[in-house]
């Protein structure tokens, strides 16, 4: 399975901006109407961007509805879902407690009954079945759309990584392959550590999406370590945050990432026709 060189990201649509809360708010205002999101996706599509990497945000179902209703307009469009939208869960845990949150996100099931009795160790099959149910609940919104790669968000990847629950990666990976005939992907801020963990559970040549930028912004272990890993380890990197939220000038940022041979794809988000064109042109021009 090949991935497009240029992938469109979604942070700008949902008020996420690592540079400025004012900018984030301005974007949240601009994109509170789903039609304005579609308009930007259309602009990107017109410039040849066919893959949309998106969080399973509560507004995504509406966007998916649009693409389902207009398949003829986007015959080759692909979504790379990234799950879960963590704040949804974090806020629910604060409000309802851990079990209450789990109960609110999962359909009625016998497994939760077992959990609620408490005290018991969960069987492996229970944990696996909870994991699969959570994935399926997040994937519902993409029914009927093409989702060739499905990611775990960094907050969950990195939490599992720190906790040392490596088997979860295996469970996720198996479920994504068998149930969705898709490739599992892992978003992380800790590439060196993640690659070791995936190795340990036998996940080979994984798709890993991580910050890769000249400034070392949110690259645990630092730029030099990442460069070494890119040279020596076998995996399929997607670079994100290549501009370090605007800290690096566009051409310099793109030139750096394009100079790293192993990087397969670059994901970026933008709101204006001009920025989308400039960035995608730069990537294509410097990817020689």
């Amino acid at each position: 399975m090949t991935m497009d060189r240029v992938i469109f990201g979604d942070n700008q649509f949902f008020g996420i901006n690592h540079m400025s809360e004012e900018k984030a708010r301005a974007q949240a205002i601009r994109f509170q109407d789903t039609a304005s999101i579609i308009e930007v996706l259309d602009t990107a599509y017109a410039q040849g961007i066919r893959t949309f990497m998106c969080t399973t945000h509560e507004r995504m179902p509406e966007i998916c509805d649009h693409f389902r209703a207009h398949r003829d307009r986007y015959p080759d469009y692909r979504f790379y879902p990234c799950m879960p939208y963590a704040h949804k869960y974090a806020n629910a845990v604060t409000e309802l407690g851990m079990l209450g949150a789990l109960r609110s996100f999962l359909p009625e099931s016998g497994v939760l009954g077992t959990l609620i009795q408490g005290g018991k160790a969960l069987a492996t099959s229970d944990i696996e079945s909870i994991g699969r149910m959570l994935v399926d609940a997040e994937m519902k919104m993409f029914a009927g759309l093409s989702t060739p790669v499905i990611f775990i968000q960094n907050i969950v990847t990195d939490l599992l990584l720190g906790l040392g629950i490596k088997d979860a990666f295996r469970i996720f990976s198996d479920h994504i392959r068998t149930r969705y005939q898709a490739e599992p992907g892992f978003i992380t801020m800790n590439v060196p550590m993640l690659l070791d963990a995936l190795d340990a559970v036998g996940i080979e040549n994984p798709i890993v999406c991580a910050n890769i930028n000249k400034a070392g912004f949110r690259m645990s272990g630092g730029v030099a370590r990442y460069e070494e890993i890119l040279r020596t380890r076998r995996f399929r990197p997607i670079a994100m945050s290549i501009f370090a939220s605007g800290a690096i000038p566009a051409r310099e940022a793109v030139a750096y990432v394009c100079g790293l041979e192993q990087v397969e794809s670059i994901v970026f988000g933008a709101s204006s026709r001009q920025n989308i064109q400039q960035t995608s042109d730069l990537i294509r021009q410097l990817s020689k």
Binding site: I155, G162, M189, S220, G221
Partner: peptide, 9 residues
């Protein structure tokens, strides 16, 4: 920001 050894949240 200098990079950390491990990042979560």
């Amino acid at each position: 920001l200098p990079p950390e050894w491990y990042y979560l949240r």
